[in-house]
Design a protein around this nucleic acid. Structure first.
Lengths: 349, 349
DNA sequence: TTTAGCACTCGGGAGGAATGAGTGCTAAAT
DNA sequence: ATTTAGCACTCATTCCTCCCGAGTGCTAAA
């Protein structure tokens, strides 16, 4: 069933009033804010109907109405106008992007901090993707007699390194040999393909080579595990407390703990079709989020992976504004990854 | 003036009772807990004196006593018995150390998480040291025609890398040349020595070399800046809410925000003589910490740097227990850095 | 110096009245 | 058929007030 235009107008007024004031919206307030030429009694009748449709609800009998999750959903889907960012806002986001993000592997952790500062909401950031990462190349660098550095690169262009200290001395030619071996036998393999393979190689090379190889390969496994584990970075969790819906500790604490501890077992649907995805109240899978909303945007990392960055807040959020900001931010990140390089401030000369 | 033994006993009983119950301690409770063969009236007299000495205070007239910051300080300095960890506790810490910390550069961020989980207090972790870091070696790895990896190692044995994409194609011999140049002219320099030097080199080599060199050097500068910036990692901030002294948002919020935002401008005295340092209430420099305590332990990173890891909580903390746990944990980290290698689970066979 | 006894203080919780915003419903008006 | 004015009603919130009890300080005796 389709709502009358007037009902839509009223629902929208309720949502937008409530987003601003955080107080239940009464019929008189609607008359004042929406440009309707009807009396408050009429509004009351309409609101009663909107309530029976499940779009509005009453905290208690003698209070105004607040939007239900379904009400917000309808608002987001049909009523909300796309928010246009001001030049200042885009400028702010651009500045933050370019100033703060220096190294590619900091993107995950820094992006969250930036968004959290910009929006004053808690944020989470993670990388995802169905495609399994593989190591595309190995380099071994001799440091001294019993220390060397392994540098690994994944197909997603992520580079990781680790310093190894070993008891038996190693030589440069030896490392050369090993890295050839690694590059021929241990590249292009996904995490599950990587373990049993070890044995074969130990036959070819000597005892010592075996132990070195296994050191580097177990490092490779760590790296791949880390990539698949979808570590979730969070930032700005205490910002929650600034919002009236989390003024009571019973509300705030479970959510804050959930956010602080959301590790690999994230209960969010991370696949998304469009750039921005909004989950309202009970649409969230995690119990701790049933009374909150999540707005997230995705960006392309390359190598078949995508990054997701989102904010968490009360269902009473400025969806239009946040969606626009996140989307713009995510686009900026996509662009950075697309270019494969950070537009550092030094480049602009 | 030296306190009588009985006063010491009473002070200690008050502190330890209060640490456990979080409720002001009355004279009767003291009689019951401390093994004193005197009546509650005597205790009351003694407590009145302890109060006038500034060691105890009364939340309000008709309540028991709680320790003042000076009271805690005296307790920590003289009365507290060193806490012996149980086998289980040390085991737990060892397990956490070995399981969670895989790569050296994760130590900072992981250590905090571990301690926070172990203690259920918010933690902070940072690296410090008067000595300036320098880059001790550069390696350039050719990836493809217009991409290469720079691997930098500091004198503190930290290795960082970055993938560069360049518009002009580069060749392996060229990179070889550049890395020699970098290693001869740009190693052993502190952050402040690093900038003006650039010009000299541009004369030697051609145009293109210049731009590549400056790319790598500016990365080196970023790395050194990052090391000097003493980035503070925090974890477990919401754990604060579990403690009764932070049940009211007015108390909890400023502190949580402070912790969440404590960036480079950390107002803590980071130098320390012993392994563990305790700051009680107003001994803290930051206003936000005036009603809280900080317990921190340091560990040796090598290369003239030391790491600091600490917990933040109410002044009513189990100082003995936490000091012991942190100290043990920090010693474990020192050992790891001393060996220069992570005792990975795979090695234990 | 210690102790028993007692009056006193004060925070915290329970109960209850006043307040007021906002409703639903009815009956008249358009 | 819809809209509106009017009015009784509901209920969260605020502000008293009262009461309780834990714990104190003080006094006077041991």
């Amino acid at each position: 069933m389709e709502l009358s235009d007037r009902k839509k107008l009223i629902l929208r007024a309720v949502v937008e009033n409530y987003i601003q004031t955080a107080e239940p919206v009464g019929s008189k307030a609607i008359v004042a804010s929406a440009g309707l030429k009807v009396s408050s009694a009429t509004i009351r009748n309409e609101m009663a109907e909107l309530e029976s449709l499940g779009l509005l609800e009453q905290p208690h009998t003698s209070a105004g109405r607040i939007p239900s999750p379904q009400g917000y959903r309808l608002y987001v889907n049909e009523l909300m106008e796309e928010h246009r960012l001001t030049i200042q806002e885009t400028q702010k986001i651009n500045d933050a992007l370019h100033l703060k993000i220096r190294q590619m592997d900091q993107v995950m952790s820094e992006a969250g901090k930036i968004i959290s500062q910009l929006t004053r909401y808690p944020t989470f950031a993670l990388a995802t993707g169905s495609k399994k990462s593989v190591i595309s190349r190995y380099d071994l660098l001799m440091v001294e007699e019993n220390a060397f550095i392994a540098v690994l690169m994944t197909d997603g262009q992520v580079v990781k390194n680790k310093l190894f200290r070993v008891s038996e001395p190693v030589s440069a030619p030896q490392l050369q040999l090993l890295s050839t071996l690694l590059n021929t036998s241990f590249t292009g393999l996904t995490l599950d393909q990587l373990t049993p393979e070890l044995l074969k190689v130990s036959a070819h090379a000597g005892e010592e080579a075996y132990s070195l190889i296994s050191l580097v390969v177990s490092f490779a496994i760590e790296v791949l595990e880390e990539m698949e584990n979808h570590v979730v970075h969070t930032a700005g969790i205490p910002s929650l407390l600034a919002h009236p819906e989390y003024q009571s500790l019973e509300k705030a604490e479970p959510l804050m703990n959930y956010l602080a501890e959301m590790g690999s077992d994230l209960n969010l649907p991370v696949i998304q079709d469009k750039n921005v995805k909004i989950l309202i109240g009970p649409e969230n899978l995690a119990d701790e989020l049933k009374d909150s909303s999540v707005i997230m945007a995705s960006y392309d990392i390359g190598g078949g992976m995508q990054g997701v960055i989102g904010v968490v807040g009360p269902t009473r959020m400025d969806y239009a504004d946040l969606a626009a900001r996140l989307s713009y931010f995510a686009d900026g990140l996509s662009r950075m990854f697309g270019k494969g390089e950070i537009p550092a401030p030094t480049e602009e000369e």
